[in-house]
Simulated scan of single mutants.
Amino acid sequence: MEPYLVPAEAVSVSEEIKKSRFITYLAPVKGSDNAKLYIQKIRDQHPTARHHCWAFVAGAPNDSQQLGFSDDGEPSGTAGKPMLAQLMGSGVGEIAAVVVRYYGGILLGTGGLVKAYGNGVQQALKILPTRTQVPKSEYHLVCDYAQLAMVEALLLQVDGQILQADYGAEIGLILLLPTLNAESIADKLRDVSRGALLLSPVA
């Protein structure tokens, strides 16, 4: 998995279209469950709004298992889909969008709604600060006590971390490492330990 952009913080934009107020929120979320919690949080902040339409790309931008959207009472296809299209077109992952609409009494028509919801997300994306997310995976490593300092020094160099350590006759480690570099990290560990340190993926 390649590195990808994620939101560095939450942002919001607001605009009035034909007396309806549209407030667009974008926020970092990791996983569909967190995205749904965030959507509920925005609903709770705006209990009197007519619609709370939403879309999310809650994993990597190309992970189709972590997508979702809802028109929340607007005509089918006029809110959630155009919002999701903007998110997917941005190439940003781990992101949720909620557009809150306070209805002003004038109907916008389907074309007007598609434009209002899609444009809200587009405007928010323009001001969204992002950072690069490097996909990481868990690996298992067994080392002796004399090798631990060497392993820790290597982890510092490669932006890895120790998630768990079991101290027995030897030390069993669960490591979190950048997925793309795992093979070269495994090679380094083998080289510095003359073949003693063997990295294996956590199943």
Rank of each mutant, 00 (worst) to 15 (best):
L67N: 11
K41R: 15
I95R: 02
Y25G: 01
T78K: 06
Q133T: 04
V98L: 02
S200L: 11
A35T: 03
S137T: 04
D144M: 08
A149C: 07
P47W: 05
D159R: 14
V151W: 07
Y139I: 05
K188S: 13
M83L: 09
L87P: 00
L156Q: 14
G172I: 12
E74Y: 00
K19W: 01
A186M: 06
G118I: 04
T110Q: 14
Y145C: 03
L198S: 01
M88T: 14
S64G: 04
G31Y: 03
Y145E: 05
V92R: 04
L163C: 13
K81P: 02
V11A: 01
L199E: 01
I23H: 00
V121I: 14
A49W: 06
K41F: 12
P75M: 03
G91K: 09
S70F: 06
D63N: 11
Y139D: 02
N181H: 12
G172D: 15
I171M: 12
P129L: 07
A49T: 08
D33T: 11
D187T: 10
K126N: 14
G168Q: 15
V6D: 02
I39W: 04
S70Y: 05
P28Q: 07
S184A: 12
Q123I: 09
G172T: 15
L156F: 11
V13Y: 00
L198H: 02
E74F: 01
A55W: 00
E152P: 03
I23G: 00
G160Y: 05
L125S: 07
M1N: 07
E2I: 12
A196Y: 09
V11R: 02
G68V: 11
K19F: 05
V11Q: 01
L154C: 12
E9W: 00
S193V: 03
P28I: 04
M150T: 09
S193C: 06
D191K: 11
I171T: 13
H51N: 10
G93R: 05
G31K: 02
G168T: 13
K18I: 02
V92K: 03
C143G: 04
Q161N: 13
G160I: 10
L189I: 05
R50H: 11
A60D: 00
D166P: 09
A196M: 10
E170N: 15
L148P: 05
L26W: 08
Y117S: 03
T110H: 13
I95D: 06
A169V: 14
Q45K: 15
T179G: 06
E94Y: 03
A169E: 15
V121F: 05
E183R: 11
A55C: 01
G112V: 09
A8T: 09
A116D: 01
L175F: 03
R194P: 00
Q40C: 06
P129A: 08
L177F: 07
T132Q: 13
S12F: 07
T78C: 09
A186L: 04
G68A: 12
H52I: 04
V158P: 00
I42L: 08
Y25C: 03
L154A: 13
E16N: 05
G59E: 00
G104D: 05
L163V: 12
S12T: 09
R194A: 12
P75A: 04
I23E: 00
G109H: 14
K30A: 12
